[in-house]
């Protein structure tokens, strides 16, 4: 849609995010200031199933979406007349869940004849950092979540180059599987992190670096090592402390993540390193990154905890570039569960 741009320097973007199990909306001014933000989480609805049930997630989204939007506008004391564009996560994610957000965003844009912007979920996670400080390029981003483990190089706004990615499980997935071995409740990641703080790195689990020059990751071997170690100990009648298992696993994950990120930051001469995704909330990862990146020439940005999990503020932040470029989308915008980040950057 080729809406007419408002002649003011305050640009308010209303953003919507429904890619998984959070129904979220936010209003972001000029790509960096959160005017309001609402997240309706569904964790309690999925807990009894030990993971997100896509159909249940979609049902919740359609029930909660307009209420979340109303609360978002009320919190910012704004009306739709003061909104300049509507942004929405178009992918990747659960298709049924994404579709609710996309249909809602299009209905809003159409009703008020506003420009519509589609955002890649991971671009959103990366741009969560823009809500804290401005980007300096070249920039390296470590994306770690339940569905992603990637190292992404950015030379300018809105362009993404994947220089490393997981060859099997995502980092957050490995956490969930180890959480199951340790028999801690869903969602497992934060529980493993908590246990690890109380234990020691005693199990000598492998550090999986793959080829020397590779920035790719692999976590399935580590997960198997944890399972085997626990199994063997049981056979021998040795009682392993849960805390030690959690700590040993976490140390191995964090060491590889931090070391690869550091090496890539040196090779590409980056000015800023940002961390994004749910696992960016992990306390040990945050601590280890701060220890490793003590070079004043390189800015390390780790978003505050509230911006690590899925939210709409990050979508509104990422959408601002498209607003400036007037890269607007039509009313035929669709959900794209397999949307590729590099391709999205070429839009």
């Amino acid at each position: 849609m080729g809406g007419i741009m408002k002649k003011t320097d305050q640009i308010n973007i209303l953003a919507i995010e429904t890619s998984c199990d959070e129904t979220a909306a936010a209003i972001i001014q000029n790509g960096h200031t959160i005017l309001s933000e609402v997240v309706a989480t569904q964790i309690d609805s999925h807990k009894r199933f030990g993971g997100v049930v896509p159909e249940i997630a979609s049902r919740h989204h359609v029930e909660q979406m307009t209420q979340v939007l109303e609360e978002t506008l009320t919190k910012a004391s704004l009306t739709m007349e003061e909104i300049d564009a509507v942004a929405v996560t178009e992918g990747p994610g659960l298709v049924g869940a994404l579709l609710v957000g996309v249909a809602t965003a299009k209905a809003l844009a159409f009703s008020h004849q506003l420009p519509l912007i589609g955002v890649h979920h991971i671009a959103g996670h990366i741009y969560a950092n823009q809500l804290v400080e401005s980007f300096k390029f070249p920039l390296l981003c470590l994306v770690v979540s339940g569905g992603h483990t990637e190292l992404i190089l950015m030379k300018e706004h809105g362009k993404f180059e994947v220089i490393g990615e997981t060859r099997d499980d995502a980092c957050g997935e490995a956490y969930d599987k180890v959480a199951r071995v340790l028999d801690v409740p869903y969602p497992g990641g934060p529980h493993v992190d908590k246990l690890a703080k109380l234990g020691n790195d005693t199990l000598n689990l492998p550090r999986i670096y793959l080829e020397e020059d590779s920035y790719d990751f692999s976590f399935s071997g580590l997960k198997s090592a944890v399972i085997n170690t626990v199994h063997n100990a049981k056979q021998k009648g040795i009682a392993l402390k849960k805390e030690d298992i959690a700590c040993s696993f976490q140390e191995s994950v964090v060491e590889v993540l931090v070391e690869k990120t550091y090496r890539a930051s040196v090779e590409y001469g980056v000015k800023q390193v940002v961390v994004a995704g749910g696992v960016a909330a992990n306390s040990r990862l945050r601590e280890a990154l701060r220890e490793r990146f003590n070079d004043p020439e390189v800015t390390l940005s780790i978003p505050p905890l509230a911006l690590c999990t899925d939210n709409a503020s990050m979508i509104g932040a990422a959408a601002y570039n498209d607003y400036q470029k007037q890269a607007f989308r039509g009313l035929d915008l669709n959900a794209n569960p397999g949307l590729d980040l590099e391709q999205y950057g070429k839009r």
Partner: peptide, 12 residues
């Protein structure tokens, strides 16, 4: 859900 999301949002 596609029609419901659209209708609910427009009406609201």
């Amino acid at each position: 859900r596609i029609a419901l999301s659209t209708a609910k949002t427009m009406a609201w």
